[in-house]
Amino acid sequence: MMSISSPRSVAQSNAVGTLYPLSTVRCVGPVLFRDQLARDIACLLDVDDEVLSWSCRSLSLSKDGQVYKPDFMVERADLRFAIDGVRDDEAPPWAKAKSIDAGFPYEAIAASALPRIRLKNAKDLLRYARHEAALSDRIRLLAALDEYSSLTVAEALVVFRETKPVAGLASMVLQRFVTMDLDERLIGPETIVRRKRD
């Protein structure tokens, strides 16, 4: 990663505040969201099956004594790349080129481009990111899915005995034991749950 000592930052006077939901599952390092747009992008990264991990503002790009840090560095199995939210106080024009020069493709995402249903589902799931399904509940659900291939959310919730059902199921989705469609409609009792297969 490119870095420079004691530089002047550009477009970085953004306040870093507490944004919801509070928990993450694949963030490596400090959680430093510039604004709600960055938080929303991070929610989507946490439910993207191709994303192994991501970090906040960990890439320093520099030019002529100025430094700019994109919102995220994202790691997939085949690629590491930078993601930035599109704002009024946009990234300096040289940021994309410097990121590419450093070997990291650069993607800028506007709030209007975020998939609204998937984002709402991601936020609902991430409310339970600090929970963990008890081993017995996890085994019961995975065994049931092996037997029936799929269950509705309503059917899956009945399986949980030690863990609060919604918290347990949400944690298993976030930990990639099971999967459900997050794009078509909001998660409901009829949403189909399947075992995650690599």
Results as ranks from 00 to 15, higher is better:
residue 70 P to A: 07
residue 98 K to M: 11
residue 48 D to N: 13
residue 87 R to M: 03
residue 65 G to C: 07
residue 58 S to V: 06
residue 72 F to D: 13
residue 73 M to K: 08
residue 81 F to W: 15
residue 44 L to F: 08
residue 128 Y to R: 14
residue 94 W to N: 11
residue 134 A to Y: 12
residue 85 G to N: 00
residue 62 S to H: 13
residue 54 W to I: 04
residue 123 K to C: 03
residue 132 E to R: 13
residue 106 Y to W: 10
residue 134 A to V: 04
residue 95 A to P: 04
residue 47 V to C: 13
residue 50 E to K: 13
residue 88 D to I: 14
residue 90 E to P: 13
residue 51 V to G: 00
residue 106 Y to M: 03
residue 65 G to D: 01
residue 53 S to D: 11
residue 113 A to P: 08
residue 53 S to L: 10
residue 99 S to C: 03
residue 92 P to Y: 05
residue 121 N to R: 12
residue 104 F to G: 00
residue 61 L to Y: 07
residue 120 K to P: 01
residue 55 S to N: 09
residue 130 R to Q: 15
residue 113 A to E: 12
residue 53 S to G: 09
residue 83 I to T: 11
residue 72 F to K: 09
residue 69 K to E: 10
residue 47 V to L: 09
residue 55 S to M: 03
residue 92 P to Q: 09
residue 126 L to F: 02
residue 123 K to N: 06
residue 67 V to Y: 01
residue 59 L to K: 03
residue 118 R to V: 07
residue 77 A to T: 12
residue 83 I to M: 04
residue 111 A to V: 02
residue 77 A to Q: 13
residue 67 V to N: 02
residue 135 L to S: 15
residue 113 A to S: 12
residue 105 P to D: 12
residue 122 A to L: 06
residue 82 A to D: 05
residue 93 P to S: 09
residue 94 W to D: 14
residue 47 V to F: 01
residue 77 A to P: 05
residue 86 V to Q: 04
residue 103 G to F: 01
residue 76 R to D: 12
residue 91 A to N: 05
residue 136 S to E: 15
residue 82 A to H: 12
residue 44 L to S: 01
residue 52 L to H: 10
residue 76 R to V: 14
residue 83 I to H: 08
residue 65 G to T: 02
residue 111 A to H: 06
residue 55 S to P: 06
residue 87 R to D: 02
residue 63 K to P: 15
residue 72 F to P: 03
residue 128 Y to I: 09
residue 115 P to E: 10
residue 120 K to W: 07
residue 131 H to P: 10
residue 42 A to H: 08
residue 60 S to I: 11
residue 100 I to Y: 06
residue 78 D to A: 14
residue 46 D to W: 00
residue 126 L to N: 03
residue 131 H to E: 13
residue 135 L to R: 15
residue 66 Q to S: 03
residue 42 A to Q: 06
residue 115 P to Q: 03
residue 45 L to Y: 03
residue 50 E to Q: 15
residue 65 G to I: 06
residue 42 A to L: 10
residue 95 A to K: 02
residue 99 S to I: 04
residue 45 L to K: 07
residue 57 R to Y: 10
residue 50 E to I: 08
residue 55 S to K: 02
residue 65 G to N: 05
residue 116 R to W: 06
residue 43 C to R: 01
residue 134 A to I: 07
residue 110 A to P: 00
residue 107 E to Y: 10
residue 58 S to C: 02
residue 70 P to R: 04
residue 90 E to I: 11
residue 123 K to V: 00
residue 115 P to A: 11
residue 50 E to D: 11
residue 121 N to E: 10
residue 122 A to W: 03
residue 103 G to I: 04
residue 78 D to K: 05
residue 120 K to M: 01
residue 111 A to K: 04
